[in-house]
Amino acid sequence: MIYPEPRYRLAGEQHLLMELGDDVSLVNNLKAIALAKKISNSSELGLKGIKAITDVIPSFTTVLIQYDPRFLVLDGLIEYCNYCWQKLDKIEELTLPSRLIEIAVAYNDRWSKACYQEYCQTIKPIEPNLELVARLNNFKSLEETIAYHSTPEWWVGAVGFVVGLPTLMPLADDFYLQAPKYDPPRMWTPPGTIGVAGSLTTIYPIVIPDGYQMLGRTPVPIFEPKQTLQPFRDSPFLFRIGDRVKFRPICEEEFEAIEQEVKTEKYQYSITTEETFSLKPYLEKKQLVK
């Protein structure tokens, strides 16, 4: 649900966490994105030459606001956030530029399996990740799980964690998975690993510790600090909030072939031109708009 009023949580003396609702939905996410944009334009605060609000990070149900407590007191910040909340456009009128990006994935791959096995040997034995996701979501086979995960378009609802890592939700309600996170987290994850936890999916741009269940691995770089490959000319990060992702299952041979193409800079990314994503048709389909 969306809360009638935003809820505020204190996150230290430099951060305020604004909570808009309690479930993963496109409506909550788009509200958070629009709100973050409004709040970060702190010129509305009337402070000239002082950057009182230093960063704003939207996610699925929250907006994290980083501010400088030397220039802005907590009560004033909350008042400002409430003001931005009230000034927000109607939900059905929210739009975002959006591209559809295809990501090739070798599901059930040997690299993430090796990482999983190391975890079992060095930390504690756990269920194989794909098997666990299949069991928890009542799939009959691993193939069915893979088909299910690679069917819908996935929505990039948040970018961050580390260097352009996207967090994705399915754009069709029938495709909500569920999976727990590792406890304790892994010490590392192979780059390109596709992970799921809760109802969300992620793609790891680099080697990093984390806790999502590992389903597969993509050979396609999504972070390129040298900015040599074509999609990275303007930014070292492939994904922007509002992009959509379609996973294409591939075998390990194709994985290695694509990996080679990437190395020789011959790989062609499959990215559509930017279109306007509007919430209205999506909501009408869901019959949420009166």
């Binding site: 230290g12 430099q14 996610s59 699925f60 929250t62 590792y182 406890d183 304790p184 809760g198 969300l200």
Partner: peptide, 25 residues
């Protein structure tokens, strides 16, 4: 109900200084 650990939360912005409870750690 959700099959999650009680420390799990829908992903949200965090920052330097946050003391996360990763499972029990």
């Amino acid at each position: 109900r959700g099959g999650y650990h009680p420390s799990n939360q829908i992903d949200y912005g965090c920052s330097i200084g946050s003391v996360l409870l990763c499972g029990q750690t």
